[in-house]
Design a protein around this nucleic acid. Structure first.
Lengths: 202, 202, 202, 202
DNA sequence: GATGAATGAGGCTTCATTCAT
DNA sequence: GATGAATGAAGCCTCATTCAT
């Protein structure tokens, strides 16, 4: 029995559904997104989705976790312990700018889940937010260990870093700036953050 | 004819509906919010809502504009030209922290419209975002005229101020911090912003 | 007390409502016609209609009887005992052609009530149909008394006269003929009927 | 795949819906007819109707075309080139009398669409009216070719034949005559028409 | 008497979900 | 396992009617 192949097939289909779901949910929001259309775009039958996900809500949550993992992976790469903190922050900013442009679907869905009103998903979104904060906190701890900064409240600072980075990118996008334009502001934003950290530690 | 009284009555009802609508839309999102429930909570008949608003969408937009005005008024008060720029930024931050706590419904709805995925309202939300940015830009211009700062790109800086303030409050709230806790961070955040402005102007 | 004037006023308003009702019912049908619009067109308040008619249905029926009376009056004039039967039939045909053109609202409403599916009004419509038939039957009796025709079944013949005349005009109108074009066919149709009567009496 | 069977099933359901629709629309008219009731009577779920027809209006139109086809078929049979023109006209009259009795639902709906006020369907109804006229015109042409009649305006004459036949049957029915009673008048009506044609051709 | 703001029953339609094939 | 035809709950909105002014 080609058990492994089947398992791979199954996982591939799961991902295809989630990929399409991200696109549709980003385009229309949770309620307006249509399972039938989604199935059609994934090239499978309506009923098939229910063989992979219990219901629409669970599909949404699975997709949310899936893209959060992808984003976290991208963030981890950006925050690799190469170079100065300033450089790492710049890479983080550019990573977000890139996600917002290249993975705008998943970026939008993610933002919407975090800051959107749909309380049905707030619990899950908060968990994801904590994951993001944790990754950044890890970087700050490393920098502190290296003596680059002195930071009394790592968690709050990590949150500050995340929220500034994220929301700056988002606002810039809403106002119509291109990825290149946004990326160009990386040094300034990174510097802003660094000084902020320095300031708040006094 | 008690024309004036009637007009006041009508406006009062309009506002009651929008207030309830803000609550429901904040709790459930646009699609899940139910006009029947909304009417019930406003203490009026189902059909009555349609005497005040053309349809659900128009009600949402009217409510959005209404709370944006209220928030803008609060922001203008916070940014009154008293004290130093640092102090004005602190007041701005506290004003947002206060809105997020006391007017959490309208704050959530507003955030959701700005950053949520519901593209149906993106055009309107962008307009409102520009209003917020304009008010902050005005303050920056005043500060520049006074020689407090030197700021090559007022608009971009205003956006930075807004997005940092807003998203910091939002994230802190999502992570469970109280208004008092958040407000305590006002000086640090304001300082962060100020240094950021100084940094980016060099 | 200006009782009489008031009574005249009241009757005038009643007629104005019915006139507007005929127009709206003809344009949209019973269900699609809107009482609010109707009131507006009649220049009175929504509630006022209910001071003159118990409800929408009763308004429709009253209007139906009212226009039937008008049409019957026109038919009686056309069938005045002047000239030959052929001439009277021609006048009848032209009267219908004229009604269909000049009073197309009431003509349509009338036809619709008679032949439309809305069984809610069929009883009343049947009564009116009998009135029409009776007027024509009277003419046939007069003609028979004068020896113009010999007609074993007056009622059936009257029905035949009415239905041919009416439906011919209606069909011609549906196919886009003008009143003048239709009226030109009066002699032919009258002759057709006359020969038909002669034929069926043998 | 049982493609053919499925296709037959689908067509059967489509027809069952249209049959029930004819009944309900005939009983209540377009607006008063209720999709829920209709579905219940067809023994299917509410939503199922929308798998077969886009909306209520389209269902009505489809039904209208469907019964028009059936009636046209019956008319064509009646007008088969057997016997004299008088005989063919008698068969036409009896066919209508039969339809009015046996298929009273579809007959009523058809009449209502043709002569009712619901302008929403007037365009379609006019098309159908032209089809009826065309079939009769064909017969008249054949008769003319055979030298049975001389008819300068075939179309107008066909319309005359149709409207007399149709409306005579309809009126008789409204006045409560049975199919048998109506059918008995076939020779008289046919003769009437024939003489009419002869008269108008002179 | 006249008005029109308020009401809420009612209906079309959508769409997540099921289940027989 | 995959499918999609069928389902029916749910919701927006209209409009005839009422009634306080």
């Amino acid at each position: 029995m080609p058990k492994i192949v089947d398992e791979q097939m199954r996982e591939a289909t799961r991902r295809r559904i989630m990929r399409v779901a991200a696109s549709e949910f980003a385009r229309l929001g949770f309620d307006q997104a249509n399972i039938n259309v989604l199935a059609e775009q994934a090239g499978i039958g309506k009923g098939t989705i229910y063989l992979y996900f219990e219901n629409k809500r669970e599909l949404f949550l699975a997709m949310l976790r899936f893209i959060a993992q992808e984003h976290l992976a991208a963030i981890r790469v950006a925050l690799a312990p190469d170079g100065t903190l300033q450089q790492r922050l710049e890479r983080l900013f550019r990573a977000f700018a890139h996600l917002a442009e290249e993975e705008s679907d998943s970026f939008n869905v993610s933002m919407s889940a975090l800051y959107g009103v749909n309380r049905a998903f707030q619990t899950e979104a908060t968990k994801l937010l904590r994951d993001y904060v944790a990754v950044i906190a890890l970087m700050l701890e490393q920098s502190q260990a290296r003596g680059e900064i002195r930071c009394p409240n790592i968690e709050a600072t990590a949150l500050m870093v995340l929220s500034l980075t994220e929301s700056y990118v988002l606002s810039a996008k809403v106002l119509g700036q291109s990825e290149a334009e946004i990326a160009r502001q990386a040094p300034a934003v990174a510097a802003l953050i660094l000084r902020g950290i320095a300031a708040s530690s006094r």
